[in-house]
Amino acid sequence: MRTIGFSLIGGSHQFLHGLPVAAALSRRSGVVVEVFVVSDADADRAREMLNAFGAGAVEVIVLRLPRFVERAARREGAAAPLKTLRLAWWSMRMRRCTTIVALERTSALLARLPGHCPPLIQIPHGVGGARRAGGNGVDGRFSAFDLALVAGEADRRSTIDAGLLPAERVQVVGQIKLSGLNRLGLLQRKRLFANARPTILYNPHFHPRRGSWEQFGRALIDALGQDRAFNLIVAPHVRLFADASASEREALEALGDPDWLIIDTGSSRSMDMTYTLGADIYLGDFSSQLYEWLIFPRPCVFIDQVGDGGAGDTKLPEMWSMGETVTSFPDLLRALSRASVSHSDYRHRQSALMHDAVGDFRELADEVAADAIVAFLDARQL
């Protein structure tokens, strides 16, 4: 009997990139699936998703720390779930698995700790998984994994070209999140406002240098509130407000107006493509959510607040070639006003880059990934 562990320590916004595969594996004979998470809330969400994907029996394990450590972290207001400490504390238990699948690179720590470590498999949570955000090059921790299952040919090339893994250890399986949601019949566009105005999705990143919220966020809300030519959804990366208190989140979301404005600081709707499917114009600095947005090619406007064109980054120039890129707030408002008309200039490139990045999202990527994991274990006679 093989035990396949899923290290889901990065937060519930990553779950859709791995749990469809866990569900597929749980239906295979001779396989036991264990899922490791960092909180009771994440455990509840994981069980909910596994049930939706028709999983067999899966044990969901919360990587709890001693109570005094958890209490001290809460007193300090630690937003990060102490991922490294949890991995170290639970490493012996986790490394009993035949193999461990991770959606982030912090789990590479398991290979560096003393003692035996089973093979590690990486499924990047999104597109561009070998890179670091915001111009910090590639992530060397990728090399600690024995196999990478990537969304498309673009990520396979970049992982190999960066010297992170050899070609035989990088396999294209498709975009698992898109495949899973498509399997559930959830990739349908639905309007989110009861009017005919075009809807902008503003999706700022949490990156301290590249993220545009601090410089542009409130000004954008104020300007569009006065103009009322557009509806607006403000749905940042869920980590942007991870450090905010409940009262701070509530005060910001209270600015919403059902006639034209939704502000979501991190609900499940920020993760399940409700907003990327329901809007008409994408506005952001950078995010792998762009590749979810473009399953239906639509206008994009990008914010380069640094003004360097993404120099030194492995992904930004490509992203920003799929729509008009601006560096100032007046230019941003003008770009939004012409985005629908100018979209024809970018549609062909959007389609070509999307095919390279994720292939056909209608393919059963979860089953392809499950097959790849089983074949990998067979080859190693594990």
Rank of each mutant, 00 (worst) to 15 (best):
A251W: 12
V33G: 02
Q215W: 14
A23D: 15
V60R: 00
I121D: 10
V358A: 09
F15G: 02
E214A: 14
E34Y: 04
G266R: 01
E59I: 03
V32S: 12
T98C: 09
R28W: 10
D360F: 07
V101H: 06
D42C: 10
D371H: 03
E48W: 15
L201K: 01
A46S: 06
A79L: 05
R93N: 11
A43L: 07
F206P: 01
R96V: 07
Q305M: 11
Q171S: 13
A372Q: 06
V101P: 05
E318C: 08
W320H: 07
A357E: 13
R347F: 10
P81C: 03
A370N: 02
T325Y: 11
F53R: 01
V37D: 14
L164Y: 04
V127S: 02
L255K: 03
T276S: 14
L377A: 04
L164E: 09
G278C: 03
L8K: 01
A242L: 12
S212Q: 05
Q289N: 13
A369N: 06
Q188S: 11
F53S: 01
G152F: 06
R239P: 04
D345E: 15
D146N: 11
F6T: 00
L87I: 05
D42R: 01
D222N: 08
D161T: 06
D366C: 05
G256E: 15
G309Y: 14
N51Y: 15
R96Q: 15
S270C: 15
A111C: 09
S267E: 14
K315R: 12
R75D: 14
L336A: 05
D222M: 07
G256M: 04
Q226S: 13
A311L: 13
S12G: 06
E59M: 08
E70F: 08
L187Q: 08
